[in-house]
Design a protein around this nucleic acid. Structure first.
Length: 438
RNA sequence: GACCCCAUCGUCUAGAGGUCUAGGACACCAGGUUUUCAUCCUGGUAACACGGGUUCGAUUCCCGUUGGGGUCGCCA
């Protein structure tokens, strides 16, 4: 039997990382086994399941490269089938009608638990069982005639021929109900695997207030999809050796359900950032430039006047300091704006220091004479100035750095100067001198 | 509360009775490289929740305790 898994989100406008991790595991598992990965949109809540919400799901899957087979099945189209099964259950005596709780809203259809203990083998948690007295009958069709989650979920999985249901831990209790339904319907039950939750530092389910919790947020921040994919895959699963930074293909090859842990785990942003940097190293300059530009546009920092060649040079100059696409916009904004702000501490430490302004004037003169304005040439010019005046390089480098960037941290000074070009450097040093030169 | 599940460094994990003086990664600390920061290199700190068993021998198996989580809807 070929493996067939599915991802069955209910579109709410956001795709939670716990949810997408389930999708990743389903995808990895089916691809590893040469099977299929299907998509079902559980859009029965018409209020929330707007086209935009559905698009969010589709976009998140596409961004992460979670390709699905065939067309997505929209659960709302299956209502007749669900009700048909409910009627069948009714006629079999496996379900009954009742005005539950005497609401007066009319009768709903309730599934009757078989009155026996139910157990199943979970592919990650092992054998699970529940006593008959702990299992209660439950509604499968509301009094308004609409099918409830349990009914739709089970019927659709049967319709789609799902062989493995890999889902969140919060569904284990449901699985006992679902097992009973498969039996009553007379369909073979799929295998189940329940994934531990992603929790926060307090051990509670990871939510928006713990940081980015939705796929879209990671995308906006400029994370690489393969880095998020890799990190999420490693949250609860490991290949068994010491590999961590892996490609999609490597993960597909190594993925098995028996290597999935059953204990909840925390998402460590710092490690995610590191992971992102590792994956970034595998990208070519063109991709990185494009990614950084897109991030700057999202940040609202991009301006049409920015010269593409200059932008490219800046990204190259930032080099491995870029761990996130958004870093260029946040840490290298001064490259693009001559009116950059000055960091007070750096100014105090480097420019307002005894003699610093005088040094800066000498440096300006020296730099103006450099031609061509390369990193090596500016380096040589300042070295020469240092030797001539008996000053340490540190005393020469820092004032210039602050004068052209406003901050004390950044790429190597000479690379930075060469990237900016003589004209810009001179202009900036003059501006600084006019502000702090007295 | 009832039922179910979980428990190795701060975090993610390896470990499926002796190979464990418990390995790796991130983070952290120290040193080196460097004009700053980052990178990079070297080294270091740091864990089997507790108590009983089983066994010649338990991180590994069993039971209990403690702690944590999940579920108890005409939500999904």
């Amino acid at each position: 039997m070929t493996i067939r898994t599915r991802f069955a989100p209910s579109p709410t406008g956001n795709v939670h990382i716990g949810n997408i991790r389930a999708a990743i595991y389903n995808w990895l598992f089916s691809r590893h086994g040469g099977g299929e990965f299907l998509l079902r949109i559980e859009d029965t809540d018409l209020e929330r399941s707007t086209p935009a919400a559905v698009k969010t799901v589709l976009d998140s899957l596409a961004w992460l490269g979670l390709t699905y087979d065939g067309e997505p099945l929209y659960q709302s189209t299956q209502k007749a089938r669900h009700l048909e099964v409910a009627e069948m259950l009714l006629s079999k005596g496996a379900a009954y009608k009742e005005d539950k709780g005497g609401t007066g809203k009319g009768e709903c259809i309730i599934f009757k638990m078989p009155g026996k203990d139910i157990s199943f083998h979970d592919e990650v948690k092992g054998d699970l069982s529940k006593k008959a007295e702990d299992l209660k009958d439950f509604v499968i069709v509301r009094s308004d005639g609409s099918p409830v989650f349990h009914l739709g979920n089970v019927v659709d999985d049967i319709t789609m021929g799902i062989t493995h249901v890999i889902r969140g831990d919060d569904h284990v209790e449901n699985t006992f109900k679902h097992m009973a339904m498969y039996e009553a319907i007379g369909a073979p039950a799929p295998k189940f695997a329940h994934l531990p939750m992603i929790v926060n530092a307090q051990g509670k389910p990871y939510s928006k207030r713990d940081g980015a919790a939705y796929v879209g947020e990671f995308q906006e921040k400029g994370f690489l999809p393969e880095a998020l994919f890799n990190s999420l895959a490693l949250l609860g699963w490991s290949p068994g050796d010491d590999r961590e930074v892996m490609t999609r293909e490597e993960m597909v090859a190594a993925f098995t359900l028996d290597r999935v842990r059953s204990a909840p785990s925390q998402l460590d942003m710092t490690k995610l950032l590191w992971m992102n940097g590792e994956h970034l190293k595998r990208h070519g300059p063109d991709e990185i430039v494009a990614g950084c530009r897109a991030a700057m546009q999202r940040q609202g920092r991009w301006r049409d006047g920015i010269d593409p060649a200059y932008f490219r040079a800046v990204v190259a100059c930032m080099g491995e300091r870029v761990r996130l696409y958004g870093d260029v916009g946040e840490q290298a904004a001064f490259f693009f704006d001559d009116e950059f702000p000055y960091d007070e501490k750096s100014v105090k430490k480097r420019l307002l220091k005894e003699g610093a302004i005088g040094i800066l004037r000498e440096e300006l003169a020296a730099l103006e004479a450099v031609e061509p304005f390369t990193a090596a040439a500016t380096d040589a010019a300042l070295h020469a100035l240092g030797e001539r005046t008996g000053r340490q390089m540190g005393d020469l480098v820092h004032p210039v750095r602050v004068a052209v960037s406003g901050t004390g941290v950044g790429p190597g000074l000479f690379d930075m100067l060469a990237t900016m070009g003589k004209e810009r450097v001179v202009r900036r040093i003059r501006r600084t001198l006019s502000i702090y030169g007295g």
